[in-house]
């Protein structure tokens, strides 16, 4: 039986190498793909994944089940690791242009779970239904991790309206997703 994430997490916190590898295998691809989406650079993405597992291994982390799903928590840590790296690399004038290097994925791992695949398609479709401006604002805010004033500048919006636009775009996306799910159930 597949061991629960939470058990693996506790074993990793207790320096269990077998558990570390199991947890790594389970999340490697998701975390790397997400980190690549965030940083647009495979070296930074690898560094982010390493930062996440270094934390899991060598620091005592306050995860418990009341905080929600382990995967969501792990993805939040991953996003923060990416934002952290992006901020630092900015100081080295790092040019993050690597879209062309996006590799075709010919090797879906067994752990590329149905959950990811299903969610991926759902969200991709939902995002495409948003207006371009809303897609862009979600991209800048969530994936690029821009500051409020960077978003204002980039989207040519008054600073005071940025927060409202971000909320609205996310709410809109969520509505589309919810509708899709309801339809999915009926069909």
């Amino acid at each position: 039986m597949r061991e629960q994430d939470i058990e693996l997490f506790h074993r990793v916190q207790n320096k269990d190498e077998v558990a570390l590898e199991l947890l790594y295998d389970r999340y490697e691809k998701l975390l790397f793909s997400f980190s690549f989406r965030m940083t647009n650079n495979k070296f930074l993405a690898e560094e982010a994944v390493q930062d996440v597992f270094t934390k899991l291994w060598s620091k005592s982390l306050p995860y418990s089940e009341e905080k929600g799903k382990f995967s969501s928590w792990l993805l939040t840590i991953t996003r923060n690791a990416c934002l952290d790296l992006l901020r630092k690399k900015k100081s080295n004038d790092y040019e993050l242009k690597e879209r062309d290097a996006l590799q075709e994925d010919n090797d879906p791992s067994p752990e590329e779970t149905a959950e990811w695949k299903e969610q991926h398609e759902e969200i991709q479709h939902a995002i495409k239904e948003l207006k371009t401006e809303q897609q862009e604002i979600i991209n800048l805010f969530y994936f690029r991790g821009f500051t409020q004033s960077q978003i204002a500048k980039k989207c040519n919006l008054p600073l005071g309206t940025v927060k409202g636009r971000v909320r609205l775009s996310l709410q809109h996306l969520n509505k589309i997703l919810t509708k899709k799910k309801e339809r999915g159930i009926r069909e």
Binding site: E28, L30, R37, K42, E46, G68, L102, Q119, H120
Partner: peptide, 23 residues
């Protein structure tokens, strides 16, 4: 509202040897 957004990422192949390096 952002909880599911990571799953919007395109699955991409991990670099050769990444697992060994990281672990």
């Amino acid at each position: 509202l952002t909880m599911d957004l990571p799953y919007a990422s395109e699955p991409i192949a991990v670099p050769d040897g990444m697992k060994q390096r990281i672990l």
